[in-house]
Simulated scan of single mutants.
Amino acid sequence: MPQPPFPLDSGTLLLDGPAGPLEVAVDLPEPDQARPLVAVVCHPLPTEGGTMHNKVVTMLARALRELGATTVRFNFRGTGQSAGGFDHGSGEQDDLRCVVDWVRAARAGDALWLAGFSFGSYVSLSAAAGLQPDALISVAPPVSGRGWDFSRIVIPEVPWLVIQGDADEIVDAQAVYDWIDALPRKPQLVRMVDTSHFFHRKLIDLRGAIQHEVKAWPPLA
């Protein structure tokens, strides 16, 4: 089945995904602000209620859209209208590859950024070496517990931002900092004081941090 065309207006659609229909939301920037950039944003753990409508995910996408990016959010398999069942990160990487393939076929001249929150950052980072994005954004990467193996992740040599709350009650913030310290090439790191995993009362600060850190990245500079 051929994939649907990339929309000219903001809205939702279904792709032909590896496990069946894959629910996707595309949001366009203001026409006079549009840059040649598409950012694909991955959501947190589906088994804990994570969806593409999560408030951190939508704020992350909004922050980039206000800088001129077209943003693409999608529900992993088994979430919302996406078919299939939770696959512990493996099948979810296939879902991400499907979305990226569709974006690149439709917007071949645009830069591609990958972003993710919590489990979504694990999926996007795990797939990054194969997908070779132009930039990466990781919010609260779950390097501690839950069984996500970050030790084998290979990060492409592209601009990379990590944002972590110091008061995260789900991800051990110190484990994130220790992981970054051990990396041969370190990301831009923003530590947000008194900030919980879901950025309660800190969403506007999150938006500001993202925009401040990435505004010099191509094609925004």
Results as ranks from 00 to 15, higher is better:
E23H: 15
V24E: 10
V24P: 04
V26A: 13
P29Y: 08
P31H: 11
D32L: 10
Q33V: 10
Q33H: 13
Q33A: 12
R35C: 08
P36E: 14
P36S: 13
L37V: 03
V38T: 15
A39N: 02
V40Q: 02
V41M: 13
C42K: 02
P44K: 08
L45Y: 11
L45G: 00
L45D: 11
P46Q: 03
T47W: 10
G49D: 05
G50T: 11
G50D: 10
T51D: 05
M52V: 00
V56C: 09
V57H: 06
V57C: 03
T58G: 05
T58E: 00
T58I: 01
M59I: 07
A61Y: 02
A61N: 04
R62I: 01
R62E: 11
A63V: 11
L64I: 04
R65Y: 00
E66N: 14
L67G: 08
L67S: 12
L67W: 00
A69Q: 12
F74Y: 15
N75D: 07
F76W: 10
R77I: 05
G78Y: 01
G80H: 07
Q81N: 14
A83R: 09
G84E: 03
D87G: 05
H88V: 10
S90G: 15
G91V: 04
E92T: 08
E92R: 09
L96T: 14
R97P: 04
R97H: 09
C98M: 10
C98Y: 03
V99L: 12
V103R: 12
R104H: 08
A105C: 03
A106P: 11
A108V: 01
W113N: 04
W113F: 15
